[in-house]
Design a protein around this nucleic acid. Structure first.
Length: 875
RNA sequence: GGGGGCAUAGCUCAGUUGGUUAGAGCGCACGCUUCACAUGCGUGAGGUCACAGGUUCGAGUCCUGUUGUCCCCACCA
């Protein structure tokens, strides 16, 4: 076999390995009755989308969970797919058409849709290719699209069922209208921002008297649609006006003054113009007082013919002209600066108009209730669980969902209108004649459904629902949904009530919520700021493994994270470390017939220590992954691999590897390989490429690491007592190093160690490692410190009192200061432990183990104190 | 107005059900051309865990309040 490259360069193998996985069908989901299924639905990225860093994090988290479960022996389905993103896609195509100098209306529906599909074919696959670069192990053969036949059928079925049971209705309501996209939006699609505006104070004359009522408005142009002025019934200032008639300026209409609790007497002038067609609150007031609804605006934001002289003007031009006209009439009282929250289109950012419009709605109350219960009863659990509160908050305050969009790209509403009898027909498949009158004159509703209507069905539409397919039976309900907290109202919630409504089951058992990836300064990434981090560039520069590790380390679940290149550099350094450690082990393996398992190895103390640490790590990592604490799991692996394995065990193994006992070398290599292989397996879900690449070089490995068993905790390999004893050796070595540094003794200078100890055996067994790692030439056991002679530096450790004669390097005074400091520290500990143990409540109420530990600690420190005092007096 | 997050080392953040002497990465200081790795190794400095109470034998962790900060929702025309 070829040797590993001396330098780690992910570009050498990442693409190659991904191809291999795909070719060997490693990602394929299989219905296997002997295995437990584990299903994850990928949140389908928009076909318009480019892979951004947020996707990268979301995908990485899913891939980690999925790879872990696969290695644990589950039959895993990670279902990929893309979303047609009705509005987003249509918006982009319309823009493109605009550049070409045409419009969708000019093209016509059919031609427009042909273009859209063409566009989808051209760009829709791009994001899929980008996902592959990250190492996503989803079953690409099952790639779904929210507008493919399967999903479309599910959409029609869902619509039909809701329609049939009266949960879908059509009605004229106030909705959020985007005059640029020319469509209705749901409440969730509105982005509010605090915009600087004005308050215009207008006088409305009272009919038959010289009096006037002053109202204040932020949208003067809507006065053309005013049908009343409202005051608070308790407001004495206006009591005499209630029931009177006002002459609405700029029009020839007369409008009443009504009394309504909605009006806040403290705000503005206490008198409010009521425009039921253009304001949600006014609409409600209008209903209460049976006011006419006069809509004065067209779909494109211009004033319509009901606006009289202002007809045809754009809303902002109309605003200007209305104010001017009022001023000319002497009815403009004053203008104040006023900033207020204004709704914007989440897609094009245009200022939205609340407008009365005939749309399709889903009645939410009956759907929200079971969705709330399911989470309240923990049928679905949020991680972290605080997001359940946010979920409840949304569902408890939810209003009916406006699902119709005046768009062409999307699922067309499955409702037909009969030209013969006027019937409204909802059907799963297009009817040929009217079932009521038999007329063939049927016209389908022009509108499309909100994209999220189809996304809401994703966990089961992709599995073939409404058919009871084998996939649906085996893989549904899914296990975990991974997504950002910003998507809870759009998607998580809607999948929940849809799943419960149509399948009778929750769509997923766990929801793993993550935060946003922010830039180095903690700002949200946005196009306008230009602070976006391109994950593909990072993969090109550092490799996918490094990016993945950087995305999940040091983040608590649900919290936002800051991404920076330094962070990825650290991950890259770690991956590089793994690369080199593996290279070291494999280099030494050459020409040696390494034992295939630990069974035949006579384990040394250091071996048992590293195996013990490995087992502890296996246990912690497995538990953390189970709880979706990906960051903690990654930390534990890194800590083990870098500190325990590389910094300690590999160094400890060197005397055996470079020594003259071939059998000892062979056995040590057995341990090195065992630990390395398990480390790679633990790391594989996080860093799939490099672990697979290295795995291929291991002498006893076969197949892909992807299909290897995830390491299992084995209590027989935990060696707790021995490992603990060996920690003493490590502490001892560190102490010698520290002594040398403290007296500026060059590390290369070998020192002679004189030890007072009752652990001669432990030290003798590990003598070679100690000499090498501590930089010592000789070890002598002595009975008393004074035997080490003059000019000696000393230190107390858990396993020995160390004396090092360092001749002229020793500054007696500095040594005295150092030991005195050490003595103070130990005395502090004695004080602390003593106080604790003097507390009768502690002795009585704390667990026995803690009390015993504290006693042992006190003993230890008392002993140390005695020894340090001896050393001080010997100076 | 309602809800939520965050406040721990110079910076960015971890800290599992309360329990060793509170950790990591980066940065900093000093020292290392040690035969896997300078993308490295060794040693170290640096924290009254925002503040004030409370519960407890014991609080960074739980409770109450305060301050600062960020986010989501609602919203006064």
């Amino acid at each position: 076999m070829k040797d590993m490259q001396t330098t780690y360069d992910p570009r050498d193998f990442e693409d190659k390995i991904y191809e291999k996985w795909v070719k060997e069908g490693c990602f394929k989901a299989k219905i296997d009755p002997d295995k437990v299924p584990f299903t994850v639905m990928m949140p389908p990225p928009n076909i318009t989308g480019q892979l951004h860093i947020g996707h990268a994090m979301d995908e990485t988290m899913q891939d980690i969970v999925v790879r872990f479960k696969r290695m644990q022996g589950y039959s895993v389905l990670w279902q990929p797919g893309v979303d047609h993103a009705s509005l987003a896609t249509e918006h982009k195509i319309v823009e493109k058409l605009r550049e070409e100098g045409t419009t969708k209306e000019a093209l016509g529906r059919e031609e427009f849709l042909r273009r859209a599909w063409e566009w989808k074919a051209q760009y829709g696959g791009k994001i899929v290719e980008q996902l592959k670069k990250l190492g996503s192990s989803c079953d690409w053969d099952r790639l779904a699209f929210t507008m493919d036949e399967r999903c479309s059928r599910a959409v029609r079925e869902a619509f039909f069922r809701l329609y049939e049971t009266g949960l879908i209705y059509r009605g004229s309501r106030i909705i959020n209208w985007c005059p640029d996209c020319k469509t209705a939006l749901s409440d969730e699609e509105v982005v509010y921002s605090e915009d600087a505006g004005h308050f215009w104070y207008f006088d409305y004359p009272v009919e038959g008297s010289g009096e006037r009522i002053t109202i204040a408005t932020t949208r003067p142009e809507t006065m053309l649609g005013d049908t009343a002025v409202a005051v608070n019934p308790k407001d004495k200032r206006y009591a005499r006006f209630v029931g009177k008639t006002l002459l609405l300026p700029l029009t020839d209409r007369k409008i009443p003054v009504v009394a309504d609790d909605y009006v806040d007497p403290e705000f503005g002038t206490g008198a409010v113009k009521i425009t039921p067609a253009h304001d949600p609150n006014d609409f409600e007031v209008g209903l209460r007082h049976k006011l006419p609804v006069i809509r004065v605006m067209n779909d494109d934001g211009t004033i319509n013919e009901l606006g009289g002289a202002f007809a045809g003007l754009d809303r902002y031009e109309a605003r200007k002209r209305v104010v001017e006209s009022m001023k000319e009439l002497g009815l403009l009282v004053k203008i104040e600066a006023h900033s207020h929250n204004v709704g914007h289109c989440h897609r094009c950012n245009a200022t939205l108009e609340p407008i009365v419009s005939k749309q399709w709605f889903v009645r939410m109350a009956p759907l929200a209730k079971p969705a709330i219960e399911a989470v309240a009863k923990s049928k679905t659990k949020f991680t972290p669980d605080r997001f359940a509160k946010i979920y409840f908050n949304w569902l408890e305050n939810i209003r009916d969902w406006c699902i119709s969009r005046q768009l062409w790209w999307g699922h067309r509403i499955p409702v037909w209108y009969c030209g013969g009898c006027g019937a409204e027909i909802c059907a799963r498949e297009e009817p040929s004649v009217c079932p009521k009158c038999g007329s063939a004159d049927l016209t389908q509703d022009e509108d499309c459904l909100d994209t999220w209507f189809s996304s809401a069905l994703w966990p089961f539409s992709t599995l073939g629902w409404p058919e009871d397919t084998p996939e649906f039976k085996y893989f549904y309900p899914t296990d975990v949904l991974v997504t950002g907290y910003d998507i809870i109202p759009f998607w998580v919630m809607r999948m929940m009530f849809s799943g419960l409504r149509y399948t009778g089951k929750v769509p997923f058992r766990d929801v793993l919520i993550h935060g946003l990836v922010r830039d180095e300064q903690g700002r949200k990434m946005s196009k306008s700021l230009g602070n976006g981090i391109d994950p593909l560039k990072l993969i090109e520069k550092y490799g996918a493994d490094s990016l993945r590790l950087a995305l999940v380390t040091g983040v608590a679940p649900g919290n936002d994270m800051r991404m920076s290149e330094t962070k990825i550099e650290s991950s890259r350094n770690f991956v590089n470390k793994i690369w080199n450690a593996s290279r070291f082990v494999l280099m030494n393996t050459k020409g040696t017939d390494v034992p295939p398992s630990l069974a035949s190895v006579r384990l040394q103390p250091a071996d048992r220590w590293i195996i013990s640490r490995l087992m502890a790590t296996v246990r912690e990592v497995t538990l953390s992954l189970k709880k979706y604490d990906l960051g903690i799991a990654a930390d534990k692996i890194v800590e083990f691999a870098w500190n325990d394995f590389c910094d300690w065990y590999i160094e400890l193994s060197k005397p055996a590897l470079y020594g003259d006992d071939p059998e000892r070398k062979r056995q040590t290599l057995g341990v090195l390989l065992f630990v390395l292989e398990n480390t790679l397996k633990l790391l594989h879900p996080f860093a799939p490429f490099v672990t697979e690449e290295i795995y291929g070089y291991l002498p006893h490995s076969s197949g892909s690491i992807m299909t290897a068993d995830f390491p299992r905790y084995n209590s027989r390999l935990s060696y707790r007592e021995e490992a603990k004893a060996f920690e003493g050796v490590i502490g001892f070595i560190k102490a010698v190093r520290a002594i040398k540094v403290s007296v500026n003794c060059p590390p290369s200078k070998k020192v002679h160690l004189f030890l007072v100890t009752d652990q001669k055996r432990l030290i003798t067994v590990n003598k070679n490692a100690i000499l090498r790692l501590a930089g010592a030439s000789e070890i002598d056991f002595i009975e008393r410190g004074s035997a080490a002679g003059e000019k000696t530096v000393s230190q107390v450790t858990d396993i020995a009192q160390i004396f090092i004669p360092l001749g002229e390097l020793v500054d007696l005074e500095a040594e005295r200061v150092r030991l005195t400091k050490e003595l103070e520290r130990v005395e502090g500990e004695i004080e602390r432990a003593g106080c604790k143990l003097a507390n009768q409540n502690f002795i009585a109420k704390a667990p026995k183990k803690l009390v015993d530990d504290e006693r042992a600690k006190l003993e230890k420190f008392l002993d140390m104190k005695k020894k340090i005092q001896q050393q001080l007096s010997a100076l």
